[in-house]
């Protein structure tokens, strides 16, 4: 098996942190990160295994799991938000996104083509959700320690990750159709670095949620 990419270790690191901190810890909805991260690490591992060892396409795997990721983040941010209007917007958009992902997967782009339509919609939704999450923190009437708030770290991670790939995703089809590999590699490298930021922020969010729970 060839060596694993660096971002995989960041994902695995977040999983280990969540396993240590969230295993016996029922703090809804943060404790859902444990099965989610486990799934993500498995997906990355099998995705790499398919591509590098079996030399088979792994697009179908990501077409299924990436929408799940979007739905999961929508659920987490929606649950952590305190403003009812924001909750409603986030849950509705998440539902619509899930419906769109299913329609796109089964009827439009299919399993074997990368579902770029879903990625574009998902990335846009993630940017909206993160902004709403941060706005929710501003609106709170209570004393908020931003750097110890899980919602802040989750939103920050998602904002950086999606801002990094947002523009690129909108031209992804052009790059694919014209076979511009160099650009794809350049943005693949940017995307990997954004994964470091995303999973570091998620690890911090998990640690913060544990500290909050201990305090209460």
């Amino acid at each position: 098996m060839p060596s694993l990419p660096l971002y995989f270790y960041f994902e695995a690191g977040a999983l280990i942190i969540s396993a240590f901190l969230l295993f016996k810890f029922k703090n809804k909805p943060i404790h859902w990160f444990l099965p989610f991260l486990f799934l993500m690490v498995c997906v990355e591992f099998f995705g790499l295994f398919y591509q590098r060892v079996l030399h088979k396409p792994n697009t179908w795997l990501y077409n299924i799991t990436i929408p799940l990721e979007y739905v999961f983040y929508g659920f987490i941010i929606g649950s952590l938000c305190l403003t009812p209007a924001f909750k409603k917007i986030i849950f509705w958009l998440t539902g619509l996104l899930a419906a769109w992902a299913i329609i796109n997967l089964f009827f439009i782009q299919g399993f074997n083509n990368l579902n770029t339509n879903t990625l574009k919609a998902g990335s846009t939704c993630m940017l909206i959700f993160s902004c709403l999450g941060l706005l929710d923190l501003f609106r709170s009437d209570e004393h908020t320690t931003l750097l110890a708030n899980p919602l802040f770290w989750i939103c920050t991670g998602l904002l950086f990750f999606n801002a990094g790939e947002f523009t690129y995703l909108f031209f992804f089809d052009t790059f694919l159709s014209k076979g511009w590999d160099q650009t794809a590699r350049l943005f693949g490298s940017i995307n990997n670095k954004m994964i470091f930021i995303l999973y570091t922020c998620i690890s911090i969010a998990i640690i913060c949620s544990r500290i909050q729970k201990k305090k209460t």
Binding site: C131, L134, L137, F138, T144, L146, L147, F152, T156, L159, F160, A163, G164, E165, F166, T167, Y168, F171, T174, K178, W180, Q182, T183, L186, F187, I190
Partner: peptide
């Protein structure tokens, strides 16, 4: 390819810069 890549890169840098600004603003505001 070069022109499009440069354009996307620039927009991405602006977006990331904007995110940094938003996060900093969030911190200062809070």
């Amino acid at each position: 390819e070069e022109n499009l890549t440069t354009m996307i890169l620039l927009v991405t840098i602006v977006l990331i810069g904007f995110v940094c600004f938003v996060v900093l603003l969030a911190y200062l505001f809070t």
